[in-house]
Nucleic acid binder design. Sequence first.
DNA 1: TATAGTGTACTAATGAACTATAACAATAGA
DNA 2: TCTATTGTTATAGTTCATTAGTACACTATA
Lengths: 124, 124
Amino acid sequence: MNFDDKVPIYYQIKNYLYHKIITGTLAPGAKLPSVRQLAIDVTANVNTVQRALAEMITEKIIISQRGKGNFVTEDIDSIKHLKKALVTKQLSLSYKQLHALNLTDDEILAELKDYMKNRSGEHE
Amino acid sequence: MNFDDKVPIYYQIKNYLYHKIITGTLAPGAKLPSVRQLAIDVTANVNTVQRALAEMITEKIIISQRGKGNFVTEDIDSIKHLKKALVTKQLSLSYKQLHALNLTDDEILAELKDYMKNRSGEHE
DNA sequence: TATAGTGTACTAATGAACTATAACAATAGA
DNA sequence: TCTATTGTTATAGTTCATTAGTACACTATA
């Protein structure tokens, strides 16, 4: 996995799993790969994976069953809330950054549209 | 200074100074506070500040003169480029994140407008 | 010339994240 | 019951960011 060396790996693994859950790649109630397999998948250590999972278990996004495996919560509401929280957090972060660079709301919107436009040619 | 404990302090100091330079709070050619004063300002160690500055000196955004002080470059073009780079990087980052959460371009724009609208009531 | 203020460099110590490795606990199935 | 698979926990060692403290190099000025 491609890690940003400015952010803790366990934190990036958490986000990686968040995205899988929110997009439905990991459906509600679905079983996650074993911690050992996950460690291989993301090229990290079991302990590091476990640290990410531990936090998600505390948040009740993941339910852990010793001997069986880790499972995505079946509480669809909490997944929806998670998505909303992530979206808002991201928007807030970008907005603050761009605003701090002296861009007005309109300029931010214009820049974003421009970015999307230029990007539409280069779908990978 | 309010640091995000998920990102190295020296990196956040760099961004802090980038913003001052781009918004003109630190004008082209202006003298920066001394490293010791900066350390006090941002509540960090001199070495940490120096590490941030060292990178900016390498990038030629800051010109260092031993015994005199550190100065913002007078090359306005490179400041403009810096701003453009920061804006694009931020947009790219958010876009990828939100896109990965399965939001379409239109939804991203809608969410952003919504965010700005809700925010316009609570100017701090 | 002496002194204060500037950037720069170095050492040593601390703490956090990460890794390799191993062991333990619970479950499922042959 | 034995074995494989799962989650969980622990130890020890490495690397890196950060800090405190000290010292050195250069500049301006009284």
